[in-house]
């Protein structure tokens, strides 16, 4: 007589999974691959879509900060490297 029939039942049920094991694993991997693909697409294009939506609805989009030269020189664009007025330096 088994010590715990519930455990025996679990073993019995688990045995029936052997033939299905590979198929389920493949399907799970396939589903996860699909979700990752969708995630990658969203990660890549969502910022662009938001930007387009903002522009279409009349927004100005992200503002670029202008930096003032502490020594009183001309202000530069957001990247801070390129002078706003070339040929003045």
């Amino acid at each position: 007589m088994p010590a715990n029939s519930f455990k025996e039942l679990e073993k019995e049920n688990s045995k029936q999974f052997d033939e299905r094991e590979k198929r389920v694993r493949h399907n799970v991997n396939h589903s996860m691959g699909f979700f990752h693909f969708i995630g990658d697409i969203l990660e890549l294009f969502l910022p662009k879509l938001v930007s387009i939506f903002v522009n279409v609805t009349g927004g100005n989009g992200p503002k670029q900060e202008r930096k003032q030269d502490p020594e009183g020189g001309p202000s530069t664009d957001g990247d801070g490297l390129r002078p706003k007025y070339p040929n003045t330096h």
């Binding site: 679990e10 049920n13 688990s14 029936q16 299905r20 094991e21 389920v24 694993r25 589903s31």
Partner: peptide
Amino acid sequence: YSSKIFGKCLSILKDEEKAEDATQ
């Protein structure tokens, strides 16, 4: 865990196909 999960699904759902789908 896959076979254990399948076993539990089979105990509750009483159908091998349903248990397989549920496991997935």
